[in-house]
């Protein structure tokens, strides 16, 4: 049946798939997908770190408060978080935010909750003796965390972070629902216009997503092996 497919629709719209209306308009397509994913991941790293540290804080209020927030976000579908942001952010900030940034905030909020679990697992994975040793050399709890525990924990977390990036790229496809012209939105747009080639269009973008995500999945595996090797010596 594959023989019956006509991929000329992909060829005719190739630049539109990859960069959208750029340079006549804003960047779209694969370019925007990567932009959304990279920016949101960088911000979620910070968000995850903060939430993760709060969730191992010795202050009970902070610990339980942050854990409740984390669990609530994790209990929601990403789509729900996106709708909430679309609904609340403009009201809170007075509408100065573009749709792309609203999506970035939603992705960041959502992913930070997952990242914080990685951070927490990373921190609790470092033997307790290290913290005790650090404190006994005169460092404060905070200093010990920043100089001794975190650097080790972060190194162990690298593969998980790369995995989160893969999830992030997949998650950016939801930006379609609010009309941000990333790859999936561009695909539906072209599909709406041409009507006859949904099969070809969706296979094509699935393959594009696969190539990007698979490359990063492999990178994460390679990092994991390397880390394991470094630990072994």
């Amino acid at each position: 049946m594959i023989g019956g497919l006509d991929f000329s629709v992909v060829r005719d719209n190739l630049s539109y798939f990859f960069i959208g209306r750029y340079p006549k308009g804003p960047l779209g397509g694969v370019g925007l997908t990567l932009y959304l994913a990279v920016v949101s991941l960088a911000l979620s790293f910070i968000g995850g770190l903060i939430l993760g540290l709060l969730s191992v804080s010795r202050n009970r209020l902070l610990r339980y408060g942050s854990m409740a927030a984390i669990q609530t976000i994790r209990g929601m579908p990403l789509l729900m978080v996106i709708f909430w942001m679309f609904f609340l952010l403009p009201a809170m900030l007075g509408g100065g935010m573009t749709a792309s940034w609203t999506i970035i905030v939603a992705l960041t909020l959502f992913t930070s909750a997952y990242m914080s679990e990685i951070v927490r697992a990373g921190i609790t994975g470092i033997p307790k003796g290290q913290m005790e040793a650090a404190i006994s050399t005169g460092l404060s709890h905070g200093q010990a965390m920043i100089h001794i525990i975190l650097p080790q924990a972060l190194r162990n977390m690298i593969p998980s972070f790369v995995n989160q990036f893969v999830s992030m790229i997949k998650d950016t496809s939801l930006a379609f629902i609010v009309g941000v012209s990333e790859l999936t939105q561009i695909a539906t747009q072209i599909n709406n216009r041409t009507m006859l080639y949904p099969t070809e269009i969706f296979i094509f973008i699935a393959v594009i997503y696969f190539i990007i995500c698979f490359a990063f999945t492999e990178l994460s595996r390679w990092l994991e092996r390397r880390l394991a090797y470094r630990k072994a010596i």
């Binding site: 339980y64 408060g65 609530t72 609340l88 403009p90 009201a91 809170m92 900030l93 007075g94 509408g95």
Partner: peptide, 24 residues
């Protein structure tokens, strides 16, 4: 806790409503 979160969200929404008014 749930109550606190509820209040917080409500407060956020209120802020939003006020800011929104500035728009028109």
């Amino acid at each position: 806790m749930a109550r606190k979160i509820g209040l917080f969200v409500l407060a956020l929404a209120m802020v939003g409503v006020l800011c929104g008014a500035a728009l028109a």
